[in-house]
Amino acid sequence: MKSGAVLRFFVLSLAMLIPAAARAGDVPAIAAASDLQFALTDVAAAFKTATGREVRLAFGSSGNFFRQIGQGAPFQMFLSADEAFVQRLAEAGLTADEGTLYAVGRIAIVVPQGSPLAADGTLDDLAAALEDGRLKKFAIANPEHAPYGARAEEALRHAGLWDAIKDKLVYGENVSQAAQFALSGNAQGGIVAWSLALAPEVAARGAHAPVPETMHMPLRQRMVLLQGAGETARRFHSFMQEDEARAIMRRYGFVLPGETM
């Protein structure tokens, strides 16, 4: 091969690959807690119908997003499952304002089809299953950085089951993975976000029941526009507070600001 031909091939390939790396117009990346996996996907679809604008959603644990945004991740908006993360970002000057409460989340016990465990929100059957050996593995999200995991731990402690169940827990990296573990058939159940349990894709795989709110601290969920948020992100932020989005959120079991159960 001639050296000129090699060089030409090299430059041409580089030229072909690089422009593709350039980002599309105003399609903001939005970081959202995993409990919104289904609800926010529906909201984004409604938003597109209403405004013709698109957003790119990334789901994960709120604690991880908090760390990533602190390190400069190029998200324009953050919907956290725990308002403390938003408040800490605001203190660090990384947000446009203090943020807005958009929902209060609920946790639920989920069990896969054919599980020896009953979907009992009071966790009484879970206690019985621990006693009689029906329970081998139980899934929750990692309490260290996933808010739903922390609330699941509180509920288990409140029921006096924490010490007995600790060795049987499997931890999802975020609440969505915990739900996947809980319903995969490899665990007898788990405590996850009610909003995930209510999604048709998930509900079809087993049974679920909400855990009483008295058993854990409330999951006050706050959203915030980040520094550098563009027009589409701003519109999406307002859209979340409009009736259409609120109706979708309500369908997924969220309690909305200004409403009670």
Partner: peptide
């Protein structure tokens, strides 16, 4: 960090 169109590779998309 799994940002669509930015850092979400196919291996990460499968996981998601």
């Amino acid at each position: 960090g799994s940002i669509p169109g930015e850092t979400r590779t196919i291996a990460i998309a499968i996981y998601d």
